[in-house]
Design a protein around this nucleic acid. Structure first.
Lengths: 99, 99
DNA sequence: TGATGCCTACGACAATGCGTCGTAGGATCA
DNA sequence: TGATCCTACGACGCATTGTCGTAGGCATCA
């Protein structure tokens, strides 16, 4: 908790961090467990998982095919890291092997 | 505009739609142009493009490899539409052909 | 054992965003 | 020219967010 404060902005009041974490916890965005009287917090989902979940919700809601979304995704992936496409293809293949 | 109202919820007041569109426009989320005294609105970006942009920002900001994001993405894609993986692979291949 | 310090629970307050609408007045069209 | 449609703007209630303070519990240490 002290450490969260240090990482965020040490100029903020301690209770500010406490309040924010508390609210995030009540919304299920972070998990916490007791450790000697004090709570220890950790993220409930990674940023990546949250974003991917967003993608999935969109796919499920689309009446049409998921293709436009996939295409848009590939566009961006390719643009920001050209090698990532190969990586993606490799991951797909690997996934097929094991399932 | 009348049509937006109809598609959204015809029970809402006309001015509700007007206000919402106006606010979206001032935030750049929709574009508009005059057509005989009335504004005609259209989305500035598709939902897909917006989400994909989010993906891109995340990839660019990641100090490490983009792999966790790709993995999370595949997990979700696979879970919500099992055939989409094949589709995705085909799209990657097609992309390689043309570039 | 009492003081010190860290932690939590809870409340507060201002700023902002959002959904909803009404009114006033300009533009359009039969 | 009058009825109809549209825009601009303000308003209101509610929820969220960033920020903090106070009160009180629990442990540690001189």
């Amino acid at each position: 908790m002290r450490s969260v404060l240090a990482e965020a902005d040490p100029a903020l009041a301690y209770t500010t961090i406490a309040t924010v974490l508390d609210r995030l916890h009540s919304k299920g965005r972070v998990l916490r467990e007791k450790s000697g009287g004090a709570w220890v917090y950790r993220a409930a989902r990674t940023r990546e998982a949250a974003l991917a979940g967003e993608v999935a919700r969109m796919m499920r809601r689309a009446e049409t095919s998921p293709e436009p979304l996939l295409v848009a995704f590939l566009d961006e992936v390719e643009a920001s890291d050209p090698t990532a496409l190969d990586q993606l293809e490799a991951l797909i293949r690997a996934r097929r092997q094991t399932s």
